Computed example of a mutant assay.
Amino acid sequence: MNLPKIPLADWIESGEDWLTDNLEPLFDFISLLIGGTVDGIHFVLEWLPPLAVIALFTAIAWLIGRWKLGVFTAVGLLLIDNLQLWDETMQTLALVLTAAFISIIIGIPLGILCARHNRLRDLVTPVLDFMQTMPAFVYLLPAISFFSLGVVPGVISSIIFAIPPTIRLTNLGIRQVPAELVEAADAFGSTPSQKLVKLQLPIALPTIMAGVNQTIMLSLSMIVIASMVGAQGVGATVLRAVTQIKTGTGFEAGLAIVILAIILDRLTQQVTKRSKTHSS
Protein backbone atom coordinates (compact mmCIF):
# COMPACT_ATOMS: atom_id res chain seq x y z
CA MET A 1 0.00 0.00 0.00
CA ASN A 2 1.54 3.26 -1.17
CA LEU A 3 0.51 6.20 0.98
CA PRO A 4 0.72 9.68 -0.56
CA LYS A 5 3.88 11.56 0.40
CA ILE A 6 3.39 14.25 3.01
CA PRO A 7 4.33 17.55 1.32
CA LEU A 8 6.53 18.59 4.24
CA ALA A 9 9.12 20.26 2.02
CA ASP A 10 6.42 22.35 0.32
CA TRP A 11 4.99 23.41 3.68
CA ILE A 12 8.39 24.46 4.96
CA GLU A 13 9.20 26.43 1.81
CA SER A 14 5.79 28.12 1.92
CA GLY A 15 6.40 29.12 5.53
CA GLU A 16 9.86 30.39 4.60
CA ASP A 17 8.40 32.50 1.79
CA TRP A 18 5.74 33.92 4.12
CA LEU A 19 8.35 34.88 6.71
CA THR A 20 10.56 36.47 4.05
CA ASP A 21 7.66 38.54 2.68
CA ASN A 22 6.16 39.64 6.00
CA LEU A 23 9.10 39.95 8.39
CA GLU A 24 11.67 41.59 6.13
CA PRO A 25 12.08 44.68 8.39
CA LEU A 26 12.80 42.41 11.38
CA PHE A 27 15.39 40.44 9.41
CA ASP A 28 16.99 43.69 8.22
CA PHE A 29 17.24 44.89 11.82
CA ILE A 30 18.77 41.60 13.00
CA SER A 31 21.21 41.68 10.09
CA LEU A 32 22.22 45.25 10.92
CA LEU A 33 22.65 44.42 14.61
CA ILE A 34 24.70 41.26 14.09
CA GLY A 35 26.74 42.66 11.23
CA GLY A 36 27.50 45.82 13.20
CA THR A 37 28.58 43.80 16.25
CA VAL A 38 30.93 41.60 14.23
CA ASP A 39 32.38 44.60 12.38
CA GLY A 40 32.83 46.52 15.63
CA ILE A 41 34.70 43.71 17.39
CA HIS A 42 36.82 43.08 14.30
CA PHE A 43 37.61 46.80 13.97
CA VAL A 44 38.89 46.97 17.55
CA LEU A 45 40.97 43.80 17.15
CA GLU A 46 42.42 45.06 13.87
CA TRP A 47 42.91 48.64 15.04
CA LEU A 48 45.25 47.51 17.80
CA PRO A 49 48.70 46.29 16.68
CA PRO A 50 49.03 42.48 16.81
CA LEU A 51 51.65 42.67 19.57
CA ALA A 52 49.30 44.78 21.69
CA VAL A 53 46.48 42.25 21.24
CA ILE A 54 48.87 39.39 22.04
CA ALA A 55 50.06 41.20 25.18
CA LEU A 56 46.45 41.87 26.24
CA PHE A 57 45.33 38.26 25.80
CA THR A 58 48.48 36.99 27.47
CA ALA A 59 47.85 39.21 30.50
CA ILE A 60 44.22 38.05 30.70
CA ALA A 61 45.28 34.40 30.43
CA TRP A 62 47.98 34.90 33.08
CA LEU A 63 45.56 36.60 35.51
CA ILE A 64 42.63 34.23 35.01
CA GLY A 65 44.65 31.07 34.64
CA ARG A 66 48.24 30.31 35.49
CA TRP A 67 51.56 31.21 33.97
CA LYS A 68 51.45 28.13 31.73
CA LEU A 69 48.26 29.38 30.08
CA GLY A 70 49.82 32.82 29.67
CA VAL A 71 52.90 31.37 27.99
CA PHE A 72 50.82 29.16 25.69
CA THR A 73 48.65 32.15 24.73
CA ALA A 74 51.67 34.28 23.89
CA VAL A 75 53.44 31.56 21.90
CA GLY A 76 50.26 30.45 20.12
CA LEU A 77 49.23 33.94 19.03
CA LEU A 78 52.78 34.79 17.94
CA LEU A 79 52.75 31.64 15.79
CA ILE A 80 49.45 32.68 14.21
CA ASP A 81 50.91 36.09 13.42
CA ASN A 82 54.04 34.46 11.98
CA LEU A 83 51.91 32.24 9.72
CA GLN A 84 50.30 35.44 8.34
CA LEU A 85 46.87 34.35 9.54
CA TRP A 86 46.37 37.18 12.02
CA ASP A 87 43.62 39.05 10.17
CA GLU A 88 41.71 35.84 9.43
CA THR A 89 42.01 34.74 13.06
CA MET A 90 40.70 38.08 14.32
CA GLN A 91 37.77 37.81 11.92
CA THR A 92 37.07 34.33 13.27
CA LEU A 93 37.35 35.56 16.86
CA ALA A 94 34.87 38.36 16.12
CA LEU A 95 32.41 35.82 14.68
CA VAL A 96 32.80 33.44 17.62
CA LEU A 97 32.50 36.16 20.26
CA THR A 98 29.37 37.58 18.60
CA ALA A 99 27.69 34.17 18.28
CA ALA A 100 28.65 33.16 21.82
CA PHE A 101 27.56 36.50 23.32
CA ILE A 102 24.13 36.37 21.67
CA SER A 103 23.74 32.70 22.64
CA ILE A 104 24.54 33.54 26.27
CA ILE A 105 22.24 36.57 26.59
CA ILE A 106 19.38 34.51 25.12
CA GLY A 107 20.26 31.13 26.63
CA ILE A 108 20.76 32.04 30.30
CA PRO A 109 17.40 33.87 30.76
CA LEU A 110 15.62 31.09 28.86
CA GLY A 111 17.33 28.48 31.04
CA ILE A 112 16.22 30.37 34.15
CA LEU A 113 12.62 30.41 32.89
CA CYS A 114 12.82 26.67 32.16
CA ALA A 115 14.03 26.06 35.71
CA ARG A 116 11.06 27.98 37.12
CA HIS A 117 8.35 26.57 34.85
CA ASN A 118 8.18 22.85 34.16
CA ARG A 119 5.76 23.27 31.27
CA LEU A 120 8.14 25.61 29.48
CA ARG A 121 10.98 23.17 30.09
CA ASP A 122 8.90 20.35 28.62
CA LEU A 123 8.21 22.49 25.53
CA VAL A 124 11.79 23.69 25.08
CA THR A 125 13.55 20.33 25.61
CA PRO A 126 12.35 18.68 22.34
CA VAL A 127 13.25 21.86 20.45
CA LEU A 128 16.77 21.73 21.89
CA ASP A 129 17.02 18.04 20.97
CA PHE A 130 16.02 18.96 17.41
CA MET A 131 18.55 21.81 17.27
CA GLN A 132 21.40 19.58 18.47
CA THR A 133 20.66 16.60 16.21
CA MET A 134 19.77 18.36 12.96
CA PRO A 135 22.83 18.47 10.64
CA ALA A 136 24.46 21.86 10.91
CA PHE A 137 24.45 22.36 7.13
CA VAL A 138 20.65 22.48 7.16
CA TYR A 139 20.70 25.67 9.24
CA LEU A 140 22.48 27.47 6.42
CA LEU A 141 19.50 27.17 4.05
CA PRO A 142 16.95 29.33 5.92
CA ALA A 143 19.74 31.64 7.11
CA ILE A 144 20.66 32.36 3.47
CA SER A 145 17.01 32.90 2.55
CA PHE A 146 16.44 35.40 5.34
CA PHE A 147 19.82 37.16 5.45
CA SER A 148 21.50 36.51 2.07
CA LEU A 149 25.21 35.62 1.96
CA GLY A 150 27.83 36.99 4.32
CA VAL A 151 28.65 37.12 8.00
CA VAL A 152 25.10 37.24 9.35
CA PRO A 153 23.83 33.81 8.20
CA GLY A 154 27.05 32.28 9.53
CA VAL A 155 26.47 33.84 12.95
CA ILE A 156 22.78 32.88 12.96
CA SER A 157 23.53 29.24 12.14
CA SER A 158 26.25 29.22 14.82
CA ILE A 159 23.78 30.55 17.40
CA ILE A 160 21.19 27.90 16.58
CA PHE A 161 23.83 25.17 16.76
CA ALA A 162 25.57 26.45 19.91
CA ILE A 163 22.83 27.78 22.19
CA PRO A 164 21.36 24.49 23.57
CA PRO A 165 24.16 23.76 26.13
CA THR A 166 23.73 27.16 27.78
CA ILE A 167 19.96 26.67 28.10
CA ARG A 168 20.24 23.09 29.33
CA LEU A 169 22.98 23.66 31.90
CA THR A 170 21.47 26.89 33.22
CA ASN A 171 18.23 25.00 33.82
CA LEU A 172 20.15 22.10 35.39
CA GLY A 173 22.31 24.30 37.59
CA ILE A 174 19.37 26.18 39.10
CA ARG A 175 17.38 23.00 39.65
CA GLN A 176 20.34 21.47 41.49
CA VAL A 177 20.38 24.20 44.15
CA PRO A 178 19.61 22.39 47.43
CA ALA A 179 15.94 22.64 48.34
CA GLU A 180 16.89 23.38 51.98
CA LEU A 181 18.62 26.60 50.94
CA VAL A 182 15.68 27.66 48.80
CA GLU A 183 13.27 27.01 51.67
CA ALA A 184 15.51 28.99 54.03
CA ALA A 185 15.52 31.93 51.60
CA ASP A 186 11.72 31.76 51.39
CA ALA A 187 11.48 31.62 55.18
CA PHE A 188 13.49 34.85 55.44
CA GLY A 189 11.12 36.56 53.06
CA SER A 190 13.32 36.74 49.97
CA THR A 191 11.62 37.84 46.78
CA PRO A 192 12.00 35.60 43.69
CA SER A 193 14.51 38.03 42.18
CA GLN A 194 16.55 38.20 45.41
CA LYS A 195 16.52 34.43 45.69
CA LEU A 196 17.68 34.12 42.09
CA VAL A 197 20.47 36.71 42.23
CA LYS A 198 21.81 36.06 45.74
CA LEU A 199 21.32 32.29 46.04
CA GLN A 200 20.53 30.31 42.94
CA LEU A 201 22.78 31.97 40.36
CA PRO A 202 25.92 31.99 42.56
CA ILE A 203 25.50 28.30 43.41
CA ALA A 204 24.60 27.36 39.82
CA LEU A 205 27.40 29.48 38.30
CA PRO A 206 29.91 26.61 37.79
CA THR A 207 27.29 24.59 35.89
CA ILE A 208 26.23 27.64 33.88
CA MET A 209 29.86 28.36 32.98
CA ALA A 210 30.26 24.78 31.77
CA GLY A 211 27.38 25.46 29.38
CA VAL A 212 28.99 28.72 28.28
CA ASN A 213 32.23 26.83 27.60
CA GLN A 214 30.41 24.32 25.40
CA THR A 215 28.60 27.12 23.58
CA ILE A 216 31.88 28.86 22.75
CA MET A 217 33.43 25.64 21.50
CA LEU A 218 30.40 24.81 19.35
CA SER A 219 30.42 28.34 17.92
CA LEU A 220 34.05 27.87 16.96
CA SER A 221 33.32 24.49 15.39
CA MET A 222 30.84 26.16 13.01
CA ILE A 223 33.31 28.59 11.42
CA VAL A 224 34.28 26.33 8.51
CA ILE A 225 30.63 25.60 7.76
CA ALA A 226 29.80 29.32 8.07
CA SER A 227 32.51 30.12 5.52
CA MET A 228 30.41 28.30 2.91
CA VAL A 229 27.87 31.14 3.04
CA GLY A 230 30.39 33.95 2.85
CA ALA A 231 31.63 34.33 6.43
CA GLN A 232 35.29 35.27 6.33
CA GLY A 233 38.06 34.17 8.68
CA VAL A 234 40.19 31.08 9.09
CA GLY A 235 37.27 28.91 8.03
CA ALA A 236 37.37 30.50 4.56
CA THR A 237 41.09 29.71 4.36
CA VAL A 238 40.38 26.08 5.25
CA LEU A 239 37.61 25.92 2.65
CA ARG A 240 39.87 27.33 -0.07
CA ALA A 241 42.61 24.86 0.89
CA VAL A 242 40.14 21.98 0.57
CA THR A 243 38.81 23.10 -2.81
CA GLN A 244 42.36 23.68 -4.13
CA ILE A 245 43.84 20.58 -2.41
CA LYS A 246 46.52 22.60 -0.60
CA THR A 247 47.37 20.39 2.37
CA GLY A 248 49.99 22.72 3.87
CA THR A 249 47.74 25.78 3.78
CA GLY A 250 44.89 23.78 5.27
CA PHE A 251 47.12 22.50 8.07
CA GLU A 252 48.30 26.01 8.94
CA ALA A 253 44.72 27.31 9.05
CA GLY A 254 43.61 24.30 11.08
CA LEU A 255 46.46 24.89 13.53
CA ALA A 256 45.29 28.50 14.00
CA ILE A 257 41.79 27.25 14.81
CA VAL A 258 43.17 24.72 17.29
CA ILE A 259 45.25 27.38 19.07
CA LEU A 260 42.28 29.74 19.30
CA ALA A 261 40.03 26.92 20.53
CA ILE A 262 42.50 25.88 23.26
CA ILE A 263 42.91 29.47 24.49
CA LEU A 264 39.14 30.08 24.68
CA ASP A 265 38.51 26.67 26.24
CA ARG A 266 41.17 27.05 28.93
CA LEU A 267 40.08 30.59 29.79
CA THR A 268 36.45 29.57 30.31
CA GLN A 269 37.54 26.49 32.26
CA GLN A 270 39.58 28.66 34.60
CA VAL A 271 36.59 30.96 35.13
CA THR A 272 34.49 27.85 35.92
CA LYS A 273 37.07 26.64 38.46
CA ARG A 274 37.15 30.02 40.15
CA SER A 275 33.36 30.15 40.34
CA LYS A 276 33.37 26.70 41.94
CA THR A 277 35.91 27.88 44.52
CA HIS A 278 33.88 30.97 45.37
CA SER A 279 30.59 29.04 45.60
CA SER A 280 32.01 26.30 47.85
Rank of each mutant, 00 (worst) to 15 (best):
L79V: 14
P192T: 00
P7M: 07
M209Y: 11
P50A: 09
K246E: 13
W18V: 05
A236R: 15
I216C: 07
R274N: 12
W86P: 02
L172E: 12
I6C: 05
P153F: 01
P7C: 05
M222L: 11
M131R: 09
G15Y: 09
S157C: 10
S31L: 05
L77A: 07
G211Q: 08
H42G: 07
D265F: 04
A241E: 03
T237I: 15
G211V: 14
L95R: 03
G76A: 12
L239N: 14
N213Y: 02
T237G: 13
A9I: 11
F72H: 08
A9S: 13
L77E: 05
H278P: 01
G36N: 12
V155T: 15
Q132F: 08
K68Q: 11
P153I: 12
E46F: 06
R175F: 02
S158K: 01
R240I: 14
M222V: 15
A204S: 04
A184T: 12
P142R: 04
W11E: 07
H117Y: 08
L172V: 06
Y139F: 15
V234D: 06
K195C: 01
A210M: 10
L239I: 13
A226N: 07
A253N: 06
L83P: 03
I60K: 08
D17T: 11
V44E: 00
E180W: 00
I163D: 03
I108M: 01
T215F: 00
D81G: 09
T20A: 12
L255A: 11
K68S: 07
I41D: 07
E24S: 12
Q232M: 14
I163Q: 02
L199P: 02
A61T: 03
D17E: 10
L128A: 00
N2W: 01
D265C: 03
Q269T: 10
V238A: 11
T98D: 05
A256H: 00
T125R: 09
D81Y: 14
W11A: 07
A226G: 12
K68R: 11
A136S: 15
L56I: 12
R66D: 15
A74H: 09
A52R: 04
W86G: 08
P126Q: 00
C114M: 13
L51D: 11
P202G: 04
D122L: 10
C114A: 13
V242Q: 07
M222T: 15
E180F: 02
S190R: 07
